[in-house]
Computed example of a mutant assay.
Amino acid sequence: MVKAAIADRDPALNLGQFTERAEAFLGDGFHESVEEVVDDALRLMEKRREGFNAMVRQKIVEAEADPRPAIPIDEAFRLLDEAKARRRA
């Protein structure tokens, strides 16, 4: 039983409902352990977060460079609500 084998190797590693999904990657010959699968998954999540943060930073730079005057937050939300209502109509 594969679940028992993982628990025997490292009882601290408990993936719960994701155990079978992680173990499925072991058959591809690319990963030698569930730990490597988890490490790859975490590395991909870090890259995704870095990409998102870079996009947010770029949007901030663009917003700061926008020559249009700022509008009060209440007005901004009103405009957003109107845009949502138009999309739903």
Rank of each mutant, 00 (worst) to 15 (best):
V2G: 01
V2D: 06
A4Y: 10
A4F: 04
A4N: 10
A5Q: 10
A5W: 08
A5C: 04
I6D: 11
I6H: 05
A7T: 08
A7L: 11
A7F: 11
A7I: 02
R9G: 03
D10R: 15
P11G: 03
A12M: 05
A12D: 14
A12V: 09
A12H: 13
L13P: 04
N14D: 15
N14C: 09
L15M: 03
L15C: 03
L15T: 01
L15G: 02
G16A: 09
Q17L: 07
T19P: 05
T19M: 14
E20S: 11
E20D: 15
E20P: 00
A22S: 12
A22T: 08
E23A: 15
E23R: 06
A24L: 06
F25R: 15
D28Q: 09
D28Y: 01
G29P: 03
G29E: 02
F30D: 06
H31M: 06
E32G: 15
E32D: 15
E32Y: 00
E32W: 04
S33W: 08
E35C: 04
E35K: 07
E35R: 13
E35T: 05
E36H: 11
E36R: 10
E36T: 01
V38H: 10
D40Y: 07
A41S: 11
A41W: 14
A41I: 08
L42M: 12
L42K: 14
L42E: 13
R43V: 02
R43E: 11
L44T: 05
L44Y: 10
L44P: 02
M45H: 02
M45P: 01
M45Y: 00
E46H: 12
R48D: 13
E50V: 03
E50W: 01
E50A: 14
G51M: 10
F52E: 08
F52L: 14
N53F: 11
A54D: 15
M55L: 11
M55A: 14
M55H: 07
M55R: 12
V56L: 14
V56I: 15
V56M: 12
R57T: 00
R57H: 07
R57S: 10
I60E: 05
I60S: 04
V61G: 01
A63G: 01
A63F: 02
E64V: 05
E64C: 08
A65L: 09
D66E: 10
D66N: 15
P67H: 03
R68F: 02
P69M: 03
A70R: 13
A70D: 07
I71E: 13
P72S: 09
I73L: 15
I73M: 09
D74S: 13
E75S: 10
A76T: 00
F77R: 05
R78N: 08
R78Y: 03
R78V: 00
D81Y: 01
K84I: 10
A85P: 07
R86C: 02
R87G: 02
R87K: 11
